[in-house]
Design a protein around this nucleic acid. Sequence first.
DNA 1: CATTCGTTGTACTGATCGGTACAGTGAAGC
DNA 2: GCTTCACTGTACCGATCAGTACAACGAATG
Lengths: 202, 202
Amino acid sequence: MEAQAAASTPRGKRTRDAIVDAAAELMYVDGVAGTSLDKVLAASGAGKSQMYHYFKNKNQLVEAVIDRYLEQILGNQPAIFELTSWADFETWTEQLLDVHRRAGGPIACPLGNLAGEVGDHPQLAPLVDQAYRAWESHLVRGLETLREKGELAPDADPARLAQAAMTSVQGGLLLAHLRHDLTALEDALRIALTHLRGHAVS
Amino acid sequence: MEAQAAASTPRGKRTRDAIVDAAAELMYVDGVAGTSLDKVLAASGAGKSQMYHYFKNKNQLVEAVIDRYLEQILGNQPAIFELTSWADFETWTEQLLDVHRRAGGPIACPLGNLAGEVGDHPQLAPLVDQAYRAWESHLVRGLETLREKGELAPDADPARLAQAAMTSVQGGLLLAHLRHDLTALEDALRIALTHLRGHAVS
DNA sequence: CATTCGTTGTACTGATCGGTACAGTGAAGC
DNA sequence: GCTTCACTGTACCGATCAGTACAACGAATG
């Protein structure tokens, strides 16, 4: 997808992963522009030749980091893959909150951080959008399932409802992170769920 | 507040403003780390000696930019200063949407962009938080007014409701900007208003 | 006219940036 | 054992970064 060289040996794959991991962590804290390749390479233990062996340039590394973020995010909310009842949606929001409770405090969404900084970047912004859509698509699928089961109103729009849920997640995370207080996310998720269930049948 | 030298003459004030304006615009597009002082100075027509005459360093310039953002944001939604009825809240959300309709497309919240990038920056993050609280405080005051007038339930918590409204604004703006589609913000604001009015009396 | 002080222009520094050049190493296939 | 090719280490490049030094300007005040 984004690779310059595809890391055809286990050793190469380990090196590539170490670079992406270090970049993901640093860019999460310092942003893309605030993270230099030298820092990434120093943190990963790799050299510059490795970096440019696996990635054409810094942008392509960022693309890999975006993918990594999406994997991490979805990995933290496994319930999103099995949304077949309204209770599953409750479970999903609980998992979302638990991530931050376990972390000892509200943490930011790495994709949200990127979304602000990347803004209208011609190459990167569409990829962030894509990642969000991939995330959101699981909510859409869940809502479609509920509609098929007759638990969601036939005239409800899963895509639009899912988008509304995502805005709550993102807004809640932004405020919660800024204030070091999960309340903002808790309330946002509760309101989002209430809004979704407002379209429930029975 | 943040100034190194306070620009005591009209000429000095013009120069200082030009620097902050240029920095605000560039940082809105390219982020803080992505905006060099050289670019700011070139765009503002000022020289480096002016920059360091009015600001101790780049961080202090960013602090002035944050203040500028708050002024711009509040200036675009004057209804927020006079929230004395539920209709005023409707007007406020309409003004919020009109800004982006007039701009020809959904634009990002400059504070939201900053919030992602400065993350946990020891000096900057608290200032972004402060700016958000200043913004939110007008919503709190409006809700308190409604409660005093008996139009909001006595047991409703204005601070918490205002925070919920802000999460909708921020989440809606983030998604709307990313997707170049105002729908996300429209829906988010409608849901937020519905939630607020759920605590209305009569 | 002289002093003063806010203001300005320009030239510079050392560090760091993204990116390149190129020689070398390691393990697997023949 | 030899070739091959993925992989690695290091030194380097021009550009740009934030920040500094310092001399000079300009408009008031005396």
